[in-house]
Simulated assay, not measured.
Amino acid sequence: MTNSSAASARGTRRNKAETPRRRFVRRFTRRHLNLVSLGFLLLVIVSGLLAQWLAPHDPLAQDVVNRRLPPFSPDHLLGTDNLGRDTLSRLLYGSRVAVQAAVISVGIGLGIGLVPALIAGYLGGWWDGVLSRIADTLLSFPPLLLAMAIVGVMGPNLTNAMTAVGIIFAPRFFRVVRSAVLSVREETYIEASRSMGTPTHYILRRHVLPNALSPLIVQISLACGFAILAEASLSFLTLGVTPPEPSWGRMLAEGREAWFYTPWLTVIPAVAIVLTVLACNLMGDGIRDSVGRETRDAG
């Protein structure tokens, strides 16, 4: 046997022994951009969770004597805003709001859209027809306008704003999961489970849902980026986080008032939003490229 044939045989044996999880990790870590995106998102999450200990100053404390200090000023790494509040501290606390926005909106979207998608995709028939028409109706509304309408009725705060965004996410999660379930339900092991009298709820939980997770995880990653952008937009319009609570969107709105004098007050939160949303989108692309159609057998 030649060296190339032996290497090919070893590679074949390794691929057969490789689990789907290890295969995903190998594909994902092969691209440095995926690791950079993951590292940046972890930095944002850790900054938000530990903002209380990492922030050098109280984000709400005003010091009009030292207002509008430029970045790299003594005791203020990123300067101060129009009221003398430390920009770095407000940025760190704003990352907490961004993380909360993503968690709340995606959680609500999954809570509303996941189970109906499983039912519609697996049972089909009139279940599929009715639930799909409801999802199509919600998709026909412009996302931010629908969110603004819901916030206008419920009142402006972070929870209400992200509830509105979560309602927007629900039909998108519905369509992704339903599409995956439609292809999985025709697999042989699903038919074998049905023929053995396996309860429907067990089939959905044990066989159908795990095979629908791959596209769902990609959609969740992209939805997190949109949630952060939506929260910033709503807070910019005073429909999200209420002043004086720090939020990247509120920081943009406040910095806009003195753009010609202190442009860094707008640039700093804008860069944070752009990089975080970009990292979420790159993560979604990386997950999509790294995961294969790893179907689970009936066992």
Rank of each mutant, 00 (worst) to 15 (best):
M1W: 10
M1R: 09
T2A: 14
T2H: 05
N3D: 15
A6L: 15
R10S: 10
E18P: 02
R23G: 05
F24K: 06
V25D: 01
R26Y: 05
R27D: 11
F28E: 05
R30E: 08
R31W: 03
H32K: 05
N34H: 01
L38E: 04
F40D: 05
L41R: 00
V44Q: 07
L49D: 04
Q62K: 11
D63K: 00
V65Y: 02
N66E: 07
R68Q: 03
F72D: 10
S73H: 04
H76C: 00
L78K: 02
G79V: 09
R85P: 00
D86C: 04
L88A: 13
L88F: 13
L91R: 04
L92I: 13
G94R: 01
V103H: 01
V106A: 03
G107V: 04
I112F: 08
I112M: 09
I119G: 05
A120I: 06
G121C: 13
W126D: 02
D128F: 11
G129I: 12
R133G: 12
A135I: 14
A135C: 09
A135H: 07
S140F: 02
P143E: 06
L145P: 05
A147N: 03
A147V: 09
A147D: 07
M148A: 13
A149L: 14
A149K: 02
V153N: 01
M154N: 06
M162D: 02
S179W: 10
S183V: 15
V184A: 13
E186G: 02
E191W: 11
R194H: 04
S195H: 03
S195I: 15
T200C: 03
T200V: 15
Y202A: 09
Y202D: 06
I203C: 10
I203L: 07
H207P: 07
L209G: 06
N211R: 10
L216Q: 11
L216S: 13
L222P: 00
E231A: 13
L234C: 01
L237W: 12
G240P: 00
T242V: 15
P246Q: 02
S247E: 09
R250K: 13
M251A: 03
G255R: 02
P263F: 03
T266S: 13
V274A: 07
V277M: 07
A279K: 08
L282F: 15
M283N: 01
S290D: 15
